[in-house]
Amino acid sequence: MRIAADLLGSTILFGVPLLLVALGGMFAERSGVINLALEGIMIIGALAGCLFLRSANLGGWGVNSPQTAMFIAIIIAGVIGAVFSLLLSFAAINLKANQTIGGTALNQFAPAFAVVLTWAIQGQGQTSITIPTWVRITQANFGFAQSASPGFFENLIFKSFYLTTPIAFILLIASYVILYKTKLGLRLRSCGEHPQAAASVGISVYKMRYIGTTISGFLGGIGGLAFTVAAGSGFQSTVAGYGFLALAVMIFGNWKPLSIFGASMFFAFFKVISSYSGSIPFLPKFENITNSSYIYQCIPYVVTMLVLIFTSKRSQAPLAEGQPYDKGQR
């Protein structure tokens, strides 16, 4: 049971950043902009969030009110991610530049900038930012002590519990509601499917696309921080390709919030299995092979490809995604 709790807990832990970022990708694409810059946005968001946590730690007040500090860090990560995404919006929406190229530029910029900045702040060669241990939510936060032999639920919940997890679930529900139940969602979706139709009834396509991409940046930034706390070894100016993975998750989830949730957990589960492969009794061990965990690491990617083969025929990608909207052209 212990291993099951660990597996499930880790799946949620690693699923959360994928979920957040894929939801971000969804908002951008539903408004008609392909956000290939998610990887870079994650890094910039994580950088901002981690720098804040670092200063809260150095200032000494973080340890006293850890979850307040974490909450502020999450907001900062989101806001900075959103601000960074404006660079993409400007190029893609106003200047109608190639969205893939714009996204590539942002992805190139983000890790380099993170290294240069952390180097400048922490001194030469010190490019990793340590995350204070107090950000983890423990039993103590709820006023009781850790059990001597923690049961299934205690393990599941408290082994690696960060504020990013509940916030991600709130944001998932909020995404669903915004997309399907509000005026904003209706208008946003119309811009991703048929921008001319939206414009003909007086909706500003530019504005909607800016909103979509900015939400995307906000979620991407938080996702970056969520990734960094989950990875556990501090901020290293990278998110290990999670931004790109999130795009695959989004496609896998057919641009729909609830399916994206399922897809991100599915993906995270296979990611986690690869690192636990040695301790899961029923999995083959490949005893003659060195580093057999590489086999398990391939699985989520291979499975994604297989799924894409079967789903691409009935893909529900927004029709106008990636196409710049020209006011004059009709």
Binding site: I101, A105, V116
Partner: peptide, 22 residues
């Protein structure tokens, strides 16, 4: 400086070249 400053310059050039097509 960290040598990554060059990547920042390259990123900036890509961004601008995306616009220059335009």
């Amino acid at each position: 400086y960290a040598k990554e400053i060059i990547d920042i310059i390259i990123a900036c050039i890509i961004y601008l070249s995306a616009l220059s097509v335009l």
